[in-house]
Design a protein around this nucleic acid. Sequence first.
DNA 1: CGTAAGCTTGACAAAGTTCAACGATTGTGG
DNA 2: CCACAATCGTTGAACTTTGTCAAGCTTACG
Lengths: 260, 260
Amino acid sequence: MLAEAATPEVSPVSFREAFSVSTEEECPAVTGARCSGCRLRPVCLWSGLSEAAERELGSLAFAHRRLKLGQALYRSGEPFQAIYLVRSGFIKTVVLLEDGREQVTGLYMPGETLGMDGIASARHASDAIALEDGDVCVVPYDRLEALSREASAVQRHLHRLFSKEIVREQRMMLLLGSMRAEERVAAFLLNLSERFTALGFSPSEFVLRMTREEIGSLLGMKLETVSRIFSRFHKDRLIEIEGKHVRIVSSAGLRRIIGH
Amino acid sequence: MLAEAATPEVSPVSFREAFSVSTEEECPAVTGARCSGCRLRPVCLWSGLSEAAERELGSLAFAHRRLKLGQALYRSGEPFQAIYLVRSGFIKTVVLLEDGREQVTGLYMPGETLGMDGIASARHASDAIALEDGDVCVVPYDRLEALSREASAVQRHLHRLFSKEIVREQRMMLLLGSMRAEERVAAFLLNLSERFTALGFSPSEFVLRMTREEIGSLLGMKLETVSRIFSRFHKDRLIEIEGKHVRIVSSAGLRRIIGH
DNA sequence: CGTAAGCTTGACAAAGTTCAACGATTGTGG
DNA sequence: CCACAATCGTTGAACTTTGTCAAGCTTACG
């Protein structure tokens, strides 16, 4: 029944098709593509730039970097050079404790920006790991700084980006600090549903790109707890789940769980 | 034995003396004081500005706002206007869930900056509440934006500020998501110790400005758990504690607890 | 096709919460 | 200035949630 989950209902194209690694035509590797043709334009840093400003900046073309599953975009301690806009694939960020424990601090989908944690100390404070093959747009930070001084639209967008990340992390603290495991999982599923919707995919049917262990780390619980809660939600007809394919049967029911 | 805790050993002046609400002479109310005389200069947004840039900006004087214990600096949903530099007193930020549950997401000491969560949506995403009487320097955001375009030192400082907040929240997620209650309390005490040290006070003896309930909310546990862990640490000779007065007896011991 | 990685489930243990009682401290109005 | 109320903190006992360990199953991959 869930076999077709990979082909979202509301969208005429599959996720993989729509956000697959670009062909050479539309995305020459190192020289970078013109932003004007990019499908991520509506969510991109550069939207809102006046045409004049765009023309002025002949350099509005950035290198792309491809990532294979498991590959690191950057690692904690590495010199900070750029921030990254996800073009395709999912990326997780991970913070490590000396004794080896790790916390997944973020999950980034196409159109989302990561890497801002590196500005403070000129070194990245987390690892960014690809959860599947994909690619990112590399935005060199020094150029961004300069541009943000020249074009106030860029500045405003950049500051909003910083602030959004702060708000996202606040919400995550709320989740980790004051919700029970069941509520966290419900909130996680509803959040994914929203974000898939924003990308034009089904709100109710999608593929988790993380293992139970990674989900557990993001939500501050053990993989067994994640598994048990998925099973319980399934039994209670709130979701259907088969491995990583999820279908939300009752988003109202999930919302009710958070309401306690 | 802990009766003198209010007078830190290493510092010749008490915390309250050093960071009390300023007298009118050094801090005229609405017109704002010249930054040059401010004791927070080394940590302030404006440090690093060239003298030329400073002179150019005759406006380098900001309104101060006094806060009484329990008073809100801003509330979630209020229009975002400014960010705030704490001059004296402690401030907590709180995020609320519809059902009334709340999560303390931050604790801000003199010299620290808060309010950046409001930029994303032009409305604050949290409440900021004074934990004791104090005052803040009000930095209007539109002026900051303009200034950050003109003076790259300001820009750099501002971006670093954003990034620091992101990193701080990441660490908080690590704490909430992957540490046991005992470890969280130990980490909390060590973190306070560091920050008091940075302000020139004793690393080992200070006054908590939060109730057990507020500490619990910050650390994602119930007030009873906080109390029990304080008692346990006391029994194990890691700290001495009497109400809100804390003395760290063995910071190595606390560090060992985090190491598992 | 075999091996490793990922997922599920059960039984039990540990950690943290809840409820309750009580003492100490703080603040307020008479 | 005192008395009373309210808030804050501590501690015990019972309970709930989540983690741990172990086994077995499925899936993906070389």
